[in-house]
Design a protein around this nucleic acid. Sequence first.
DNA 1: AACAATAGTGCCTAATTGAAACTAAGTCTA
DNA 2: TAGACTTAGTTTCAATTAGGCACTATTGTT
Lengths: 124, 124
Amino acid sequence: MPKDSAETKYFTVDCPNRLLFAEIADKWSMMILSVLDTGPHRFNGIKRCLEGVSQKSLTQTLRKLERNGIISRTVRSTSPVAVEYAMTPLGMSLLGPYRAIYTWTCVNLSEVNAARLEYDGRQT
Amino acid sequence: MPKDSAETKYFTVDCPNRLLFAEIADKWSMMILSVLDTGPHRFNGIKRCLEGVSQKSLTQTLRKLERNGIISRTVRSTSPVAVEYAMTPLGMSLLGPYRAIYTWTCVNLSEVNAARLEYDGRQT
DNA sequence: AACAATAGTGCCTAATTGAAACTAAGTCTA
DNA sequence: TAGACTTAGTTTCAATTAGGCACTATTGTT
């Protein structure tokens, strides 16, 4: 007999919010969004802004964001073919919540660093 | 000669915000925070709320959050030793920004699903 | 003709994640 | 008192994922 059979399972593996969260809150997605926040960019333009991205990871992340309707991908048939990535209205609506997290990291970075030093000191 | 030598590198590999963001915005961290938002929990209590976490991943994520000063870890010397995890004030300050993201997923889930269907339809 | 830039793709290895078993200390049951 | 169960992890190994590097194809420049 379980002690607390009423314990709620908050996050099941198929929770849609959990799945969507995993798609929008990863490392590269958020950085791409803040680059596109300054205006439309081309593939290699984004790449130059994000030190350490491989073409493969960038392609994959851009595809994922495009599939979720957060950015748009427009091919321009110019000299060397240009592919322009831009924020969609849906993507723009995500910028507010994202900026809240970003601002939090700016405001609390020193407090986090203090906590880290304190923690590392405890682990003799 | 580079065409645009003034192109800004927004995110370098050692950008502190980028590093901190990676520590707080991963899959399990955010789910753990929303569990602890409802009050202090013990190790296996959290585990039961998060379908699919392994002990290892949970331990690692809890340690990381503790090190960053976002949660506290208290050992109670009761019958089988009890370890209680709770939000710190710093952690609570992160809940607002997190809820903004969570709310966004709730509000825009249907629009994202529509975008996915449209995208998948285009890829005949 | 050779070289650079465009936007990718493909292969292979390195790093991370997760599943399952194990540890250790104490409680409860038969 | 042996056996099973709880607690909170750690360890080991396998699988998934991520990243580095080389390659394609097209156009423009020198």
